[in-house]
């Protein structure tokens, strides 16, 4: 198991390195640059370029960047002068992560419960309701979902605050808005997986032993049905925890979401790279956790990994 994990970490490092390199050069290939303001004089532009080191040859910039990255230094932002990318991330990530964890807790717990109830009531009205909720959740985009939540729960019924992030009540709507899609997809996958597992021979074996229906469902069906849900959790966790542009803007949350869009618009090279590396590392890390989780849930994977 240790050897397996070490191997996974090695592969992950290579993945992140390739990611950094590709994004570094892709960002430079974009038309325009960080100092495109037409009001800016030519001299000022050259000064700034020299200050940030953009006048040096590309490979030299690349090596400098890699060197800094090894020290955990993402460099200075060109859009927010005097602030490092590290500062920006450190200021925004806690908000995104806090919101993301809440959204995930909501999405996974409700998704699993809905999926299980739905599968156990296959074909009747309860199932139909949950299936409709799941289809709704996976097909309605988040900006509409967020706006709907705000309209009904804040404007119309006045139950919850409409925006900002200042206490538990404030966190409910954005968490639901952010987690709804994941909740719906978890519920759909769990339902489908439960219905597949229930047809397996070992469920019949379990029933032939004369144990309770509850135990058959809990010990035999759910345990085996949960694998596909774990599979989608890796990328989902990474995406939800590192902030989303739409939900954070709608609810005025100072998270990381806006930097994804802003950094590219402003050709803020260091910020683009910082965001990408941060998100990429997070994604690779989450997928690794999922692979290890597999081994815990499914003993067959444990052997293969030895």
């Amino acid at each position: 198991m240790t050897k397996y994990i070490l191997k996974r970490i090695g592969i992950s490092l290579v993945t992140v390195f390739v990611l950094v390199s590709v994004v570094f050069f892709l960002a430079r290939l974009m038309p325009g640059g960080p100092f495109n303001d037409p009001k800016m004089s030519e001299a000022a532009r050259e000064n700034l370029s020299a200050y940030y080191g953009f006048d040096k040859p590309l490979w030299e910039q690349y090596l400098t960047y890699l060197g800094n990255l090894l020290h955990g230094n993402f460099g200075f932002s060109t859009k927010y002068p005097s602030r490092t990318v590290n500062d920006l991330l450190a200021g925004a990530f806690p908000y995104s992560a806090d919101l993301g964890i809440r959204a995930l807790c909501f999405a996974i717990s409700f998704g699993l419960v809905f999926g299980i109830i739905s599968a156990l009531n296959r074909g009747n009205k309860i199932d139909l309701i949950f299936v409709i909720v799941a289809v709704f959740g996976t097909s309605v985009p988040d900006f509409i979902m967020g706006a709907l939540l705000q309209y009904f729960f804040s404007v119309k019924w006045g139950l919850l605050p409409i925006a900002e992030y200042k206490g538990f009540a404030y966190t409910i709507l954005p968490s639901v808005g952010l987690g709804f899609y994941t909740m719906a997809s978890v519920s759909r996958i769990m339902r489908a997986s439960m219905l597949e597992v229930v047809q397996q021979d070992y469920i019949k074996t379990a029933r032939s032993k004369g144990i309770s229906r509850f135990r058959v469902t809990w010990k035999h069906q759910i345990r085996n049905a949960i694998m596909p849900v774990i599979t989608i959790l890796g990328p989902t966790v990474a995406a939800v925890l590192t902030g989303t542009f739409v939900i954070e803007s709608l609810f005025a949350i100072p998270g990381m979401g806006k930097y994804y869009v802003e950094s590219v618009q402003n050709s803020d090279y260091s910020l683009i790279l910082g965001m990408t590396v941060f998100y990429g590392t997070f994604l690779v890390f989450c997928n690794m956790i999922v692979d290890i989780l597999y081994g815990i849930v499914d003993p067959r994977v444990r052997i293969a990994g030895k």
């Binding site: 021979d201 070992y202 074996t205 032939s208 004369g210 144990i211 345990r223």
Partner: peptide
Amino acid sequence: DREMRKIRGVEIGFIFQDPMTSLNPTM
């Protein structure tokens, strides 16, 4: 179903066709 549980396994046992798929892989 509750009454059947008193028969399954203790009065009548069942051996299934395919041992590859008839055992729970996670137990």
